[in-house]
Simulated scan of single mutants.
Amino acid sequence: MKRRGYDGVAVCAPISIPYRRYSVNSAHWWIGRALCELTRRAGLKPGDLDGLSVSSFTLAPDTAVGLTQHLGLSPRWLDHVPMGGASGGVALRRAARAVQAGDADFVACVAADTNHVDSFRKTLTTFSRFAQDAVYPYGSGGPNASFALITRHYMNRTGATREDFGRICVAQRANAQRYDGALMRKTLTLDDYLGARAIADPIHLFDCVMPCAGAEAFLVCRDDDAYALGLPFVRVLSTIERHNAFPDDPIQFRGGWAVDREEFWGMAGVTPDAVDFLQTYDDYPVIVMMQIEDLGFCAKNGAPEFVRAHSLTGDGDFPHNTSGGQLSVGQAGAGGGYLGLVEAVRQLTDTAGATTVPDARIGLVSGFGMINYDRGLASSAVLLARA
């Protein structure tokens, strides 16, 4: 069955609340800051927001429902998207359908997390039952160990080297030097990358995201409402999401994008060579490689050679993670799943400032999240176009 397109939907008002390494404020505070800035930017009052989509790991014990009372909101459409790095694409996809159906006029999509001194450890201890049962009892905890396994398998399978992963990290740091919101802006060379201390072999220091606090948000509405408010906006060409793809793979080497790729490009009516920039979820560079392959920019197992053949900086021939990605901006919990999407909207509405990709008309944003003990379960992708 052919899915209906997203005609008439506008994505606008990209918001980033400056990140901090640690914060004494709650996730509620960060979400409130983002929504306050979003309504101000859009020229709306809080009561105009009749839709709300929330992603956060540190909002507990509240969910999106409890948050409405904290913030004095009364939406008629509400969504809670606890999907980590896939959250941005999933939130946009669902909000777009709500707007098309008339279930909401203005949907605020927001992702945020705080980072107290002990927040990350506490998040990991309750992250998933799989991890609690199958990993932690053996003294291995957190995503570093899981991604070390995935990375080593990918290297053995494809011939990828640490230098290949380093090219991604170095390019993203160069991009981050143009983005004021990045927490890590010191020059990173390939020698710096290769010489960094090991964390969980073959993963070294600069392969790992740094947990921090922050918030990202955007607004989904009808295009005529965006015009009436004078808001620059982008169009949605296609979206996909997939969960628990390829469960029989002993070790993950592909994601859900590979299942739905043909539908994704077919719905948009374009091919990968039409894309002017790519924003991938980048908690570790191996996942960037998988997305490049599974989205169709090269053949499977071909990402190492692809990375060697292209310049990934914002002014290169394959602009990628133009704000620096999580590897240089930081990972604000679930906010990391929105980082690339918010940056893409900025790129296509001429509000990206120093990170601008000249003449960009189409951008792709992909997400990946919810690592259990051996794989990430959630994937999403969104293709956006200049209005």
Rank of each mutant, 00 (worst) to 15 (best):
A10D: 07
A13L: 10
N25M: 10
A27D: 02
R40V: 07
K45N: 05
D48W: 05
S55V: 06
F57N: 07
A60D: 12
P61W: 04
G66D: 09
G66A: 07
T68K: 09
D79H: 12
H80N: 14
M83R: 09
G85K: 04
R94I: 10
A98T: 05
V99A: 10
V99W: 10
D105E: 15
V107G: 04
V107I: 10
N115L: 11
S119W: 06
R121D: 11
T126N: 11
F127W: 10
R129Q: 12
F130Y: 15
A131D: 08
V135L: 15
Y136P: 00
P137S: 11
G139P: 11
G141W: 09
G142H: 12
A145L: 12
F147Y: 15
I150W: 01
I150D: 00
Y154Q: 04
M155H: 06
G159K: 04
F165Y: 15
C169W: 05
Q172M: 15
R173S: 10
R173A: 11
A174Y: 08
A174D: 07
G181P: 00
K186M: 03
T187D: 14
L188H: 09
L190D: 11
A196Q: 13
A198T: 15
A213V: 10
L219R: 01
V220I: 13
V220R: 10
A228G: 12
P232R: 14
R235C: 03
L237P: 06
I240H: 06
E241S: 14
H243Y: 13
P250G: 08
G255T: 12
A258G: 00
D260Q: 08
E262Q: 11
A268K: 06
V270Y: 07
T271R: 14
P272L: 11
D273A: 13
D276E: 10
F277Q: 02
P285H: 09
M289Y: 04
I292L: 15
C298R: 07
C298L: 12
A299W: 06
G302C: 05
R308D: 02
H310V: 07
S311Q: 14
D317G: 09
G324W: 03
S328N: 08
V329E: 00
A332W: 03
L339G: 00
A344D: 01
L348T: 03
T351F: 00
V357S: 02
F368K: 03
N372W: 02
S380D: 10
